[in-house]
Design a protein around this nucleic acid. Structure first.
Lengths: 107, 107
DNA sequence: TAATATACCTCGTCTGTCAAGGTATATTTA
DNA sequence: TAAATATACCTTGACAGACGAGGTATATTA
């Protein structure tokens, strides 16, 4: 990974929410999708992912349920809540602002 | 401040180097300039600033000297080094990449 | 003369990240 | 068929950057 984690820090929750906006998903899949979306340049570490899930659920931004797999390993699915949608919009706005600001400061 | 510090995290050093690229400066002034540049939306906290100076000097990206003020409080000036210039270019490239990546992940 | 501005600094806490470890099932390969 | 790999979950403890709160000293302004 070429991008240091300090630069990505703080975006994990927004990235997850963005993903759940498309569809319910589970940890392993989300991780895979993020890798794919970034052409394998960014991999959310599992420990990071699960601690983010913990915070998001705590905040009421996601809810969780077990999948009904009859074969294969069980899957814990995550779904975004109404509050999560609002939070995501906030995160996104914050990102736009931060982006402009950093662009202004780095020249 | 509306931007959370986790989003800015990791950019402190690049922001400082960018500033020193224009001219030598000292802590208090750098802080003021950053506030001004961002229309007072972002203030680098002093503790953050000084710990970044520490790291930058350690890394050989800046060097420091005392100003020869005859009046007023003494000033410790910072100057960017050749290595610092290279490091800055690296930081900047990293930022461009990270920006694209986050934009890709938040939609 | 009190308050504010300029200018420096340190200590200890907080929080997100992640390396390293673990469990269990299913599939592929040697 | 045994071993390796992939899928899928999870926890613990350490690390590092940000920063609140505190400190010192000088100069200016109200």
């Amino acid at each position: 990974m070429s991008i240091t984690s300090d630069i990505l820090r703080g975006h994990t929750e927004a990235i997850i929410l963005s993903h759940l906006l498309e569809q319910d998903s589970y940890g392993y899949q989300i991780n895979k999708d993020i890798m794919k979306k970034t052409d394998n340049t960014y991999e959310l570490k599992e420990a990071t992912l699960y601690s983010a899930f913990r915070r998001l659920e705590q905040a009421g931004y996601i809810r969780t349920y077990w999948g009904d797999e009859t074969v294969g390993a069980r899957r814990r699915y995550y779904a975004i809540t109404e509050e999560g949608i609002k939070a995501y919009q906030g995160y996104k706005k914050e990102w736009q602002e931060a982006k402009d600001m950093i662009d202004k400061l780095l020249r």
